[in-house]
Computed example of a mutant assay.
Amino acid sequence: MASFQLPGSIKSLFMFAYFFITCVSFIGNLMVCIMILKHKRAHSASGIFTINLALANFLITLLNTPFALVSFINNTWMYGHMICYLSRFVQFCSVYVSMLTLGALSLDRYRVTLQPQKPRMNTVKGSICVIIIWIQASCFSLPHSMYQKISQLDVVNKTNRMICLPSVPGPSDVIRKYLDLTLFILLYILPFLVTVVTCSIMAKKILLLRNPIQDERIDFSFNHQQKKKVILKMLIMVVLVFYICWSPLYFYEVLLSSSAIYNHEAVYFALHWFAMSSTCYNPIIYYLLNKAFRDEVKIALRSWWQKVFNRNHTRPTVSAIFCQNLRESYPPQEVGFGMCEDIDEIASQYDQIDPSNVRIIIGMP
């Protein structure tokens, strides 16, 4: 592995870049889950697949990105063997889950778009598909994590530099080469081809034909067609962004396992950051292309801001003003202990009135 000490400015730039995508990914994917769970109309197989994508992004954001950043900054691995296994497992499992989910989502949209007369996949079947996806992804990710080990480098110089690397039993070169190549084809190339084929067919039917399924009973109004186009655009953008971000790192890993190139630490972490940045793009795509999602985000942000603002600028209620005037007008001994509590119960129904318009007049004996 080729390595050298990078300037402090480059490390600071990487710190900011990793921190930025971590924050955007966490907030954005959290809002996606909340918006889908909040609205019953989004409770469908497509909604479950979208939440699954967000959960996969959550997993890799919390359990892989921070460890990679600290290792790059400190130029050593400092978390022990267990996190070394876990971090590698999470990276591959999240990627495989995303790939398989995108393939399932494209097939679901294909069926909804071109075969609307058939019953749609319900949430139960969608949940079963998600469980199967996670089981498959976990099984395929285990070989990557099982053969991880922490190696010590620069022993001669006594720098005690530790690094988390794959260590496949002999003949290691052959096993790692064919393992990475097989998983690359099965879990990267095939889901991508399925997604490309289904999206191409949907685009041809929606964009080139006036009636995609040749059924006059279906209402093909302009808004209906526009909605289908928007959904197709979002799916294509999500797929393209994901594969554009992850392809450089995946090809780099395949070349490393084939001994075609030597690992360069700075190059690896640059490609790793580019791949990790894919976790923060989906919410942005939804916001830009989906008007309903955009409106819900604006409403949620406005509601949150109003709560924060009103918490810092709380207006007194009518009952509070009444009790204050009562205490100022009468001596304490003439006011019963529970009198203001009784007044609160009576006056609470009027608390929606603007207190600035209330004038309380108490007759003096």
Results as ranks from 00 to 15, higher is better:
Met1Gly: 10
Ser3Tyr: 10
Leu6Val: 09
Phe14Ala: 15
Met15Phe: 13
Val24Asp: 01
Ile27Trp: 01
Met35His: 09
Leu37Val: 02
Ala45Asn: 12
Ser46Leu: 07
Ser46Glu: 15
Leu53His: 03
Ala54Glu: 01
Leu59Phe: 07
Leu59Glu: 09
Thr65Asn: 07
Ala68Met: 08
Ser71Trp: 00
Ser71Phe: 00
Phe72Tyr: 14
Asn74Ile: 00
Asn74Phe: 07
Asn75Val: 01
Thr76Val: 02
His81Lys: 10
His81Leu: 15
Ile83Cys: 13
Leu86Arg: 01
Leu86Glu: 08
Ser87Phe: 01
Ser94Asn: 06
Val95Cys: 13
Ser98Thr: 11
Leu100Ala: 06
Ala104Leu: 14
Ser106His: 08
Leu107Ser: 08
Thr113Leu: 15
Leu114Cys: 04
Gln117Ala: 12
Lys118Thr: 06
Lys118Glu: 10
Lys118Gln: 11
Met121Ile: 10
Met121Gln: 14
Val124His: 15
Lys125Pro: 00
Gly126Val: 05
Ile128Thr: 11
Trp134Gln: 05
Trp134Ser: 02
Met146Ile: 15
Ile150Tyr: 02
Ser151Gln: 10
Leu153Tyr: 14
Val155Asn: 13
Asn157Asp: 12
Ile163Gln: 12
Val168Ala: 02
Val168His: 02
Val174Tyr: 08
Arg176Leu: 15
Lys177Glu: 10
Leu183Glu: 12
Phe184Arg: 01
Ile185Cys: 14
Ile189Leu: 14
Leu190Ser: 05
Val194Arg: 08
Val196Asn: 06
Thr198Ser: 15
Lys204Phe: 13
Ile206Asn: 03
Arg210Ile: 01
Pro212Gly: 03
Gln214Ala: 11
Gln214Tyr: 03
Arg217Trp: 01
Ser221Met: 04
Ser221Thr: 11
His224Pro: 00
Lys229Gly: 01
Lys233Gly: 00
Met234Asp: 05
Tyr243Met: 08
Trp246Val: 04
Pro248Ala: 03
Tyr250Gln: 10
Val254Leu: 15
Leu256Gly: 08
Ser257Ile: 12
Ile261Thr: 07
Ala266Phe: 06
Ala270Phe: 11
Ala270Glu: 05
Ser278Leu: 06
Ser278Thr: 03
Cys280Ile: 05
Ile285Ser: 03
Asn290Gln: 06
Phe293Ile: 12
Val297His: 07
Ile299Lys: 14
Ala300Leu: 12
Ala300Gln: 11
Ser303Gly: 13
Trp304Lys: 11
Gln306Glu: 14
Lys307Ile: 13
Lys307Trp: 09
Lys307Met: 13
Val308Lys: 08
Ile321Gly: 00
Leu326Thr: 02
Tyr330Val: 03
Gln333Lys: 03
Glu334Gln: 11
Asp342Cys: 07
Asp342His: 08
Ile343Lys: 00
Ile343Leu: 05
Asp344Val: 03
Asp344Leu: 05
Ala347Leu: 14
Gln349Cys: 06
Tyr350Trp: 06
Val358Cys: 04
Ile360Thr: 02
